[in-house]
Structures are given as structure tokens and as C-alpha cells.
Design a protein around this nucleic acid. Structure first.
Length: 246
DNA sequence: ATGGTCGCGTAGCGA
């Protein structure tokens, strides 16, 4: 919470998508975050997963859970329509399954989840509105997005099937904000707690903003807030930020 | 090849 509130005050974002809340809804610190001016929507889960959307502007619609499997109990998806100054826009917070070890049931679940996301993301394009699908995708898109590609070849985050499924979603008509605005090699968003990964800059780029065409038209800047990886009790992920002229 | 670090919840799992 120290890291979160410090960043919220400094960056002052209009909308925030959080993943890995690791708490049931009733245990989320509503008061502290509402005090900073945010409306809050939570999909909580005990111990694992859990996602949230914070917004300074009001929510018009909310749907919780990724469609396509009524039996899926894991809290990994919230979608919101937010009332912008010049019309509505849509935001989803996504915590895509890690999938390790691969192969195995966890990797099967990851690929199934990505299939469901693809179907849903395709349907959303019909709205022809600004959409940002934001979150921890647990996908390293390309070799340039990992410090040592050869060491990651058998990891669920970098397997060819994972990367091609991610590409299939992009090829529906979504744009990665990072690729449109920057695209350089070695721009990481996650550094493991182990083995001095941060100190040695052994990172991976797995946190992404996927934009509908109408959102891609309106993006004016993209930032990776690396500084948050330092400091007291940091997350192993850092914020990725899109700035839009909506 | 191994062990290395976190949070949750109070052992061991998931990352």
C-alpha cells in the first residue's frame, strides 16, 4: 500500500488497472484509495489472483469475469465503461495466467484463457470505441523483450504457442501501445525478486496496453515507470502508462 | 544443476 499510494499521488492517473490483489473484496483498502479521489471496482479472491479498476471519473458499466467458461473461478478480469469528458471509453484489467510449468494443466489453462480473451476481444471491436485492454499478460512478445531469450525458451511466458496466441489477438486489430510509441529493445516491466534480477537489469516486458483502433488514434505518450522498482517493498512489476487525448 | 525472493497466511503454493 505504501508503494501504491506513493505512485498514485505522484503519477495522478485518471484510471488504474491493478492485478494480483491477493485479497477478498471485503479486505481491499477502499478507504485509503477513495481518499485519493477514486471510484473502485474489485473482483477479489482469497490469497491468489484478484483484479481492480480505479477511476476518477464515474463507471457507466461494469462486468466481472472473462466470458466463455462459467466454471472458471479465478479472479482475472474486469471490464468497465467509463464516462469520458468527450464520450465513453472502455477499459479492462487483465491478469493472464502465468502457465508454468509447461507443458501441463496450468499451461493448458493459460492457452484456453487466451482463446477466450481472443473471442471476447474480437467482439469488443464491433463497438468502434476507444478500448484499452491493460494488464499483466504473462507474455514476452519478442526476443527483444527479454534479457536472455535462450534462457526463456521453455518458459510458459515465451513459448512459441504463447507468443503466437498473443499475436493472434493483436492481429484482430489491436495495437500494443508500447510498439506504437517506443518499440525499443530492453524496455522491461518486470524483474524477479531473485538472483539480483533488478540490480543486473535481467528483466522481461510482460505488462501491456492493447489498444483498439480508436484508442490507438488518441494515444499521445507511453511510459514505463521504472523508478517504482526501487524503494520500500516494491512490486516486482512496474506501472506501464498510456496518455490519451480523449 | 542448484538455489535464490516474495506474499499470503501461518504450510506450502504460486509466481
Amino acid at each position: 500500500m505504501h508503494a501504491v499510494t506513493k505512485w498514485l499521488k505522484e503519477a495522478d492517473p485518471d484510471v488504474v488497472c491493478l492485478q494480483e490483489i491477493k485479497a477478498m473484496t471485503e479486505n481491499f483498502p477502499f478507504m485509503e484509495i477513495e481518499a485519493l479521489g477514486y471510484n473502485i471496482e474489485i473482483l477479489g479472491q482469497k490469497s491468489y489472483n484478484g483484479v481492480a479498476i480505479l477511476s476518477k471519473r464515474p463507471f457507466d458499466e461494469i462486468s466481472k469475469g472473462l466470458p466463455g467458461d462459467e466454471t472458471d473461478e479465478q479472479a482475472r478480469y474486469i471490464e468497465a465503461v467509463i464516462a469520458g469528458e468527450n464520450g465513453p471509453f472502455r477499459v479492462a484489467t487483465i491478469y493472464l495466467p502465468n502457465g508454468n510449468p509447461a507443458p501441463g494443466p496450468k499451461y493448458d489453462y493459460k492457452l484456453d484463457w487466451m482463446d477466450r480473451l481472443k473471442v471476447h476481444a474480437k467482439g469488443l471491436l464491433k463497438f468502434e470505441e476507444p478500448i484499452v485492454l491493460a494488464g499483466d499478460y504473462n507474455v514476452i512478445p519478442e526476443e527483444k523483450d527479454v534479457y536472455a531469450p535462450k534462457e526463456w525458451l521453455t518458459e510458459a511466458l515465451f513459448l512459441p504457442q504463447t507468443r503466437s496466441k498473443f499475436r493472434e489477438i493483436l492481429n484482430l486489430g489491436y495495437t500494443e501501445a508500447f510498439e506504437q510509441m517506443d518499440g525499443r529493445a530492453g524496455q522491461y516491466t518486470f524483474w524477479d525478486y531473485q538472483r539480483g534480477a533488478w540490480q543486473n537489469n535481467e528483466g522481461i516486458r510482460i505488462d501491456h496496453l492493447l489498444l483498439s483502433p480508436q484508442a490507438a488514434d488518441k494515444i499521445v505518450n507511453f511510459e514505463i515507470h521504472k523508478a517504482t522498482r526501487d524503494g520500500i517493498k516494491p512490486s516486482d512489476h512496474v506501472p506501464v502508462v498510456g496518455i490519451f487525448d480523449l
